[in-house]
Design a protein around this nucleic acid. Structure first.
Lengths: 160, 160
DNA sequence: GTCGCTGCAAAGTCTTTGCAGAGAG
DNA sequence: CTCTCTGCAAAGACTTTGCAGCGAC
C-alpha cells in the first residue's frame, strides 16, 4: 500500500465474472435466471452511489422501460442478493436502507451530513484493531462496518 | 488507560444532572416540561439495552401504567432528544431503529448476530485513526460510528 | 409441462400527523 | 389565559404477501 495505510480503491471484479457468480448462485439454490434479476444486478454494478430500493427501481424503469419491473421484484431480488452476501445494506440516519454491491473490496463509509455524499475508504490499522477488539471481547468476528460523519470538502467551501 | 487501549466504561452523568440538562434544553427552546417527557428520559437512563420506540413504549406502559403514554409521544420525544443530541439512534440490519442515551462516553458497538446482544467499547487507536482519515479526505469530522458483528462468547458455547 | 418468478394490488409494519381537550408557564 | 403537549385515530411511507398468468428449464 502507498504512503498512507489508507486505500480508496473500489471495484475488484468484472461484470462478466459477477454475472457468472450470480448465475452460479441461482443454479446452486434452484432459483431461476430472469432478465429482471440480471437487470437489478447490472444496475447496481453500474452505479457508484448507494441506492435505496425505491431509487434502484426508478433507475431501472428509466433504463429498461420495456421491462415494467415491479418494485416488489426489486425488494425480492435485493433480499435474495443480501442473503447470499452479494449486496450489503446500510442504514444511515433517518431514511431507509441503502444497498450496495458487495463485489467491492471491504470498505468503510465517510458520509457528508450536508449533501449526503458517501465516500468509501479502507484503513489497515483500523481493520487490524477491530480483529483485536473482537478477540478481547471473546467474539467470533464475522463482519463490521464503520461510518464517519462530517462535512465534505466541497460543502465546506460552499459554506464559506 | 489500562493495559489495553480498549475501555468498556459507560455512564458519565448522574440522573439529576441529565434531567437538569434536559430541562435546560426545553426552556431554551421554548418547550414545556411534561411528565411524559421526563419518564421517557428516565426510562432511557435506567435501561442498559438499546431500545426501539416500541419497546420503550412497552416498558413505560409497564412502569407507569397510570400515565397511558401514547406511542406518538414516544416518537415525538425521541425525535426531540435526537435533534438535541441527547440520544443517538442506531439502525442495525433489518429491524427498525434503536435508541440509546447519548449521555454516555462515546463508544462503538459489537453486535452478536445470533442473540442480538450489544456490547459497547471504545478504542483509542481506532478513534485516533478515524480523525486522521477524515483529515486525509478533507472532511470536517462531526461524528462516527462503528459496529462489529459476530458471535458472542455465550452463543459460541451454546452452539457447541 | 412443471414450478418458480413476475406484476399488480392488497395487506402489513412502522412512523407521522390532525385534532380537540388537558395542562404547563 | 395562552399556547404547547398529549392521546387517539387516521393517514402516510415503506415493505411484504397473495394470486393468477408468464416464462425458464
Amino acid at each position: 500500500m502507498s504512503k498512507t495505510e489508507t486505500d480508496f480503491s473500489q471495484r475488484t471484479i468484472e461484470y462478466d465474472d459477477l454475472l457468472a457468480k450470480f448465475k452460479d448462485l441461482l443454479k446452486k439454490n434452484g432459483y431461476k435466471y430472469t432478465i429482471q434479476r440480471e437487470v437489478i444486478l447490472e444496475t447496481l454494478y453500474n452505479c457508484d452511489e448507494h441506492l435505496t430500493p425505491e431509487s434502484l427501481h426508478q433507475r431501472i424503469k428509466e433504463l429498461y422501460p420495456e421491462l415494467k419491473t415491479g418494485i416488489a421484484t426489486v425488494y425480492r431480488t435485493l433480499a435474495l442478493l443480501e442473503t447470499s452476501d452479494m449486496v450489503t445494506s446500510l442504514s444511515f440516519g433517518a431514511q431507509g436502507k441503502k444497498y450496495e454491491l458487495g463485489a467491492k473490496e471491504h470498505h468503510d463509509h465517510m458520509i457528508c451530513t450536508s449533501c449526503g455524499e458517501i465516500t468509501e475508504f479502507v484503513d489497515a490499522a483500523i481493520e487490524a484493531r477491530q480483529h483485536d477488539i473482537a478477540k478481547e471481547l471473546g467474539f467470533l468476528m464475522q463482519d463490521h462496518s464503520m461510518q464517519i460523519y462530517g462535512i465534505c470538502k466541497s460543502c465546506q467551501e460552499k459554506g464559506k
